[in-house]
Structures are given as C-alpha cells and as structure tokens.
Design a protein around this nucleic acid. Structure first.
Lengths: 344, 344
DNA sequence: TTCTGTCATTGGAGCGTTCCAAAACACTAA
DNA sequence: TTAGTGTTTTGGAACGCTCCAATGACAGAA
C-alpha cells in the first residue's frame, strides 16, 4: 500500500475518480459504479477497480457528491447553551454515540449554535437553505417546543431525543422512560420496607419532570401507598432542594425518589440538618446518574440513562426516515437502569 | 418579504444564483460578486441585487461553494468516548461556544467519532481525504498525543484545547492555566492562615495533572512553606481519593488543593471519617467547578475554567491559521477563576 | 450468418458555484 | 471624432461527482 507507507502522505489527497479510472483502465463511471452499485460490475472488473482505489487511497469528494446527489450526508444538531438549572443530561456521551452511528452509515453530525427563543428556528432554516443538512436530531424537547411541528410542516426528516410533550405528536422520537425509572425506584424502596416514600420533583409543567413524577405516583397507588402530601417541588439547585426535602421529612417521609441527582442532594442536606445520614432508613434514589452521584457520601443510587443506546436508536430512526419519508412514525422508549449505591 | 410570509415556506429552498440574477436583471457572476466582493459593483447595482437576494431568500449552496473553492468551511472535531476517570471537562459548553464562534465566521463544526488508540489518526485522515474539513480542533491533549505532530506534518490547520505536553511544541493552542489556578488556591488558603497545605493530585505523567501540581508546589515554595510529604496521588475516583486524603491528613495537613473536584471529594470523606467537616479549619479547593462542587455539603470551592472564552479563542486562532498557514504559532493561556463556596 | 435481447461499460450533461479573461461601458484627453 | 484609460459587467470553463441514455460485447435463437 504505497499510500500508507510513503513517508509524508500529503493532506487533502485530491485523488479523483478519473485518476482511479485511468489506473484501473476503465471509465470514470465504472469506478463510480464500483463504489455505489458494485453488483453492476463483472467480479473481475470490480476487483481491478478496487485495487486501484486502495492503491491510490481514493475517497469520494463529499462536496461533489453532495452537489450531484442533492444530499449532504450531514445531520444537523442544534446545540443549545447549557443553562444551569435546566435538566441537561450529560451530552458528550450522547453526541459520541450519535456520531459513531452516523459515521457507520456514511453520515456526519454537524453542530450549529441555536439558542431557544432567539430565532432558533431561523438557524434551522438557514442550514436547510444552504443544503447543509439532510435531517436533524433534536434534544432537550419540552412543552411548547415548536421545532417538531416546524420541521414536520416542511417535510424535513428529523428525530427527537425526547417525546413530543405537547401539541401534535409529530415525528419519530427516542426517549428514556422516566416513569418506568421512578417506578422501579419506588418498588425498590418499598421492597426494603419503606411506605412513606416522597417525590422530590421540579415544578409541574415540564414534560420530563411530570413524566418522572407520574411513575412515582402510579406505582405508589399500585402498591396501596398514600401520596398525600408526599410530593414536593423545587428548582434544580441544592438550596431549594434542601428546603423542599425538609418539607418531605416534616411530613414523615422515610425515603424519597428524586427527579434529578441535584434534587437528591437536597434530601442529603435536609437529613444532615436533622443530624441524620442517608442510608437504609432514610433512603433516596436520584435520576441521571450524573457525576454527582458517586461523589456524594454516602454514594447516591441513581437511574442511569442508556445514552449510548439513545444515540444509536436516534440515528437508526433518522436513517429510516431519510430512506422513506412516508413510513409511519416510530417511537422508542428505553428503560433507565437503577445503579445501586449506598443511599438505599 | 414574500419568502417569510408565505404560508408554507418549503424546505431546501433551491433558489440558485441564476434565479437571483434573472430577477435582478444581471448576470450570474454579478450576483456572486455582490456576495463575495461587493466593492466591485456599482452601488446602484449592488442594491438591486441585494433586494433580489432578500426577496427570494437566497443562500449559496454550501456543497457547490465547497466544490469550486476547495474549502468545505467545516471544522472537524474528533469526539472521543467519555471515559470515566479521565479528566474530561464538561464538553457541551465548550462545543457550544466553539460552534457559535464558527457560525459567526461562516464555518460549522462537524463531529466525527474518534477513539484514542483505535486508529484515531485514520479517522482524521478519512475526513481530510473526503475534503470534509478545512481544519481541526483537538481537545483532551495529553502526553504522547500524536495528533498534533501528525497534523502538523501534513500541513493541516488545527488548534488544540490543551498544550503540547510532550514532543515538539507544534501548532497553536489555547489552554487553561492550571498552575496559575492552583497557585491562586494556595495563596487563598495561606491567606487564611493555613501553612500545611497538601496537594491531592493524579499520578505523575499526565500533562494537565503535573501542571496543576506545579502551581501548588512553586507557590508553596514562594511562600516559604514546606511541601515535604504534602503531595499525594490518586486515581480520579472518590474511593482512592479518600485514601489519599487520609494520608494527607495523617501528615498533618490542615488544607488541601485538589487537581479535580472528584479528588476534593476524597478530602471531604477523609475528614468525615475522622468526625470532622470541611470548612475554615480543614479547607479544600477543587478544580473544574463541575456540577459536583455546588452539590457537596458544604459546597466546594473550585476553579472554574473559562470554557466560553476557550472556545472563542480556539476558533479565533484556527481562523487566523486558515487565513495564513505560515504565520507564527500562537499560544493562549487563560486563567481559571476561583469560585468561593463554603469549603474554605 | 443475422437478428434480438441481456449484460457490462461508457461518454455526455449537469448539479451550483467561483475563477478567469474578455467584453462592454463610461469618461477623459488628443 | 478617436484613442486611451479605468471601471463594471459578463460568458465560458471548471471543480468532482452521479444521472441518464447510449454503446459495445456476447450469448442464444432464427
């Protein structure tokens, strides 16, 4: 392989189809076919062309392909500023699995800065007008999110990490089953004898938060446990969470399920103020399995989101949609896994 | 503006230069000039063309531009899997500011999955061969990182978030001054009367970790404080960190500077085991100001990295490099800011 | 042998842009 | 009026690829 063993393999190789064709002694188009429709070639020809491709280290010029096929093979991801207080799951893992899945399908993920409210849709529009993306992946969907409807109306393929929480349920999505997660937490705590299990949640109105609350509530009912006065609300910061947790404790709760790890921290601190420590008799389970969880003392049990799977599934759905715009919409709900540590 | 007021503005507009030209009553090339070299046009013509562009909502087709100008206007970012234990700062903020800065310059950031070791350089090669990026942004640079040298040898523009820790110092970089950060921490603690200030670090050999250790060490010396037996090493997990912190405490340390927030957690737990609590008489300052810091009790003081500025500077250096490949290399060192909370 | 159909391969055209060199224009000096 | 200058505008070509329709090769059937 001269291409890889030469001392300084130049950058931006600039090997073209024509060069490969010349080397293999065939026409330009035949090389193109070897790559895109190998079944059209005689095996013998195919092999000859393949060898020429390998020897020259040829790779198709993406821009030329994009221009001709009218497909950029790029997936747009509007990256929002990370607001403190917003339930932003750790993104890098998601983005990594997304990119990996995209790569395998010959796609790439292209980022663009998009701030909610600040003409966010305009950013999507711009990328589309430039033919800079064939489809989009959304994340951080919430009530009143206009992106799904907007994209749907324009017939743009997309998939969301997060359900359509309000409005028409349009488009494919992948989500983590928050309700199933908190349900599992409740069962776990109940299995350890807890009956007064509280819920530390965000203010009502956020899709994600309400879903997690629902899992707690329905499971409590299923188990015949009372939810009266057992649900408190707080913003996603330790100070407010502590106050909220104190209300829970004042109500006699012996355990809690939290909508986030930060909220679970409130339980820790409320206990501490009354001279106690989280553990078997004052248990709590968080959500997201963020870096906070193993850092707390005692280490916080939490629900880990299967971000790798989410990324893969997002890309799978999007690719199917790109292949067939008319196929029925598909929804994927993945269960989080309970990571048990010392807080239960 | 008919384009924006029509009921269903189609996606992938497909307005071409030719159409704009027809509407403005000029030649194709004139429209191109209006966009790329407006100073060539007569003001009157320019205005007429501008109006046609606005009315039709024209945007150049990126692929066509890329093909003709041989510049993709894309910046590659090889996203590595987030390994637990590795000092991976919160990436989304960095990526956001990077994207934002790129957008403003007419560039976009394209992600590709690249796993260190697993033919990582091959991934860079592939993107280059496809003409899928004009330059790269690296992050997570460390000792023995081959990426900088590899890119440099091929004359590929790039900028690193993180210094060249070993080998030839090639290429532009932006970094956070870890030594300055830990130095500030030491000064702060010394100012509160502490003299036995320990350092909770990672095993020697990591560029980032050694830099942070250096700031502690030189400042201790400057202040005439002994460092003998005051430096301990640990992996970046709470359990090992606790053991390490205990050694520090056994040596009589009354305060500590940690190379990461996770390591600072070790100090918390070691204190707790001996029935004490972090605070004025057993202070500690972490690094990175991760979500862990405000979640701990008492809240952990930490050094926040100016990730927005890092992203902006990275893009600035890269754009300058793209504009002039031969200009001398430039290094930018940004100071972290000490976020004071209750642990001091 | 010639015709027909199938399969494998080919050349021309065009995707939307910018480069380039030439043309048109305006305006002054001869 | 004509030539000479500089400014403004233009058409053709090309970037590298794939679409498309046409060609050649080669078999079996007439």
């Amino acid at each position: 392989m001269p291409a890889s063993s030469s001392p300084a393999p130049k950058a931006g190789s600039s090997v073209t189809l024509e060069m490969v064709a010349a080397r293999a002694g065939v026409a330009r188009q035949t090389v193109s076919n070897a790559i895109n429709s190998p079944e059209l070639l005689r095996p013998q020809t195919l092999e000859r062309v393949q060898r020429a491709i390998d020897e020259l280290g040829y790779r198709p010029h993406r821009a030329a392909q994009a221009l001709r096929t009218r497909a950029s093979k790029l997936i747009g991801y509007g990256i929002r500023p990370s607001l403190a207080g917003a339930p932003t799951p750790v993104l890098d893992q998601f983005l990594h699995s997304l990119s990996e899945a995209a790569d395998q399908a010959g796609y790439r993920v292209v980022l663009f800065a998009a701030t909610p409210g600040d003409d966010e849709l305009g950013c999507y529009q711009r990328l589309l007008d430039e033919h800079g993306a064939d489809g989009f992946v959304l994340s951080g969907t919430d009530r009143g999110d206009r992106r799904q409807g907007w994209l749907h109306d324009r017939g743009v393929p997309f998939v969301a990490f997060g359900r359509t929480w309000s409005g028409r349920d349009v488009g494919d999505w992948v989500d983590v089953d928050g309700a199933a997660g908190t349900a599992a937490s409740v069962r776990r705590l109940a299995g350890q004898g807890h009956e007064k299990i509280g819920f530390l949640g965000w203010p009502k109105g956020s899709g994600v938060g309400d879903d997690r609350a629902r899992g707690w509530q329905t499971t409590m009912r299923e188990l015949g446990l009372s939810v009266r006065g057992r649900r408190v609300e707080s913003l996603d910061d330790p100070a407010s969470a502590t106050e909220a947790a104190e209300r829970l404790l004042a109500g006699g709760a012996t355990a809690a399920v939290a909508a986030s790890d930060t909220l679970a921290v409130g339980w820790y601190q409320a206990l501490r103020r009354s001279g106690r420590t989280p553990g078997p008799d004052a248990a709590v389970i968080g959500f997201d399995d963020s870096p906070i969880a193993p850092a707390l003392f005692p280490a916080l049990s939490s629900l880990a989101q299967p971000l790798d799977a989410v990324g893969r599934e997002c890309m799978r759905l999007l690719l199917e949609r790109l292949g067939d715009a008319r196929r029925p919409t598909e929804h994927v709900l993945l269960a989080p896994t309970l990571v048990l540590r010392d807080s239960v």
